[in-house]
């Protein structure tokens, strides 16, 4: 581990405000990295418009079959749990289904399968004012964004300062990969029953990973907030309540970062930053 502190921002569903929280925290902090791990649909760059300094390709290994050597034993087909291989008259590979486990090459007794590189996406490194940005973009149709996320997190490992990881939505493998090395997790939740249900799912995930966490209640109104009730029931710290606010919504939909603008409630993000820094120091 480097000398940095990694703060992952996640939520059980899309559109709760992960990017809103991450870009504002990264901007409020003087020495920060904004890391967009939502490699399937990255949108942090829309706020930062970073100047890209470096772009690199990310590749994975996929099988390559030598049909001359193949005896048609189907060991590889039977081994593949993702059903990426089939055999009619010869071995058929479904590249977009392959998860690059390498198992088929291992089980082939006649060494008819070797591995070859396939590009699955890119990682880009950039800068926007004082914020250093790292993001990735998966090629359309690929099975998994995990190789790209691994590449991003490998890059960030030895960097110093605060790293804000904008996670993909949900609680599946790509989210686990994104929060694996995090020092703290911020769970963003909406004030609806659906929001509370999705909060419960990510809460279960961060508990499983034994990560300290707190909740940001976004889009709060005067009405009943099922996500807040969930936090109280489970004694989870509520870090900040962001009001349902047309002004913030408008800034956000225009790709503006609230703490860089003259937004009336921008103190909310600074107080959130202070609380999170206290939690990880």
């Amino acid at each position: 581990m480097g000398t940095n502190k990694k703060i992952a921002v996640l939520s059980g569903k899309g559109g709760t405000g992960k990017t809103l929280v991450s870009v504002n925290l990264a901007t409020a902090e003087a020495n920060s990295y904004y890391v967009d791990c939502d490699v399937e649909e990255p949108n942090g760059h829309l706020y930062f418009n970073p100047q890209i300094c470096e772009e690199k390709a990310v590749s994975v290994l996929i099988p390559k079959v030598n049909h001359e050597l193949c005896t048609g034993c189907k060991e590889c087909v039977n081994f593949c749990k993702f059903n990426a291989l089939a055999f009619g008259e010869k071995v058929i590979l479904f590249k977009e289904i392959c998860h690059s486990c390498g198992g088929c090459a291992l089980v082939c007794s006649v060494k008819a399968i070797t591995e070859t590189e396939k590009m699955v996406g890119i990682v880009n490194i950039g800068v926007s004012d004082q914020v250093k940005t790292v993001g990735g973009m998966m090629n359309t149709g690929e099975a998994s964004g995990i190789p790209i996320i691994k590449n991003i997190l490998e890059y960030i490992k030895d960097k110093s300062g605060y790293v804000f990881i904008d996670c993909p939505p949900g609680s599946a493998c790509i989210v686990m990969e994104s929060i694996k090395d995090a020092d703290y997790c911020i769970l963003v939740a909406e004030p609806t029953i659906f929001g509370a249900h999705n909060l419960a799912m990510v809460y279960e995930l961060v508990r499983l990973f034994d990560k300290p966490c707190g909740v940001v209640l976004n889009k709060c109104t005067d009405g009943h907030n099922p996500s807040e009730e969930f936090c109280k029931e489970k004694s989870i710290e509520i870090l900040v309540k962001i009001p349902f606010d047309m002004e913030l919504g408008e800034l956000n939909s225009n790709g503006k970062i609230a703490v860089r603008e003259n937004y009336k409630n921008k103190e909310l993000f600074y107080s959130l930053l202070t609380k999170v820094k206290e939690a990880v120091e």
């Binding site: 087909v77 993702f82 059903n83 990426a84 089939a86 055999f87 009619g88 479904f94 289904i97």
Partner: peptide, 12 residues
């Protein structure tokens, strides 16, 4: 995933 592939394989 790949249910169609596996079902087709089974019939082959």
């Amino acid at each position: 995933g790949g249910a169609g592939i596996k079902a087709a394989q089974m019939l082959v």
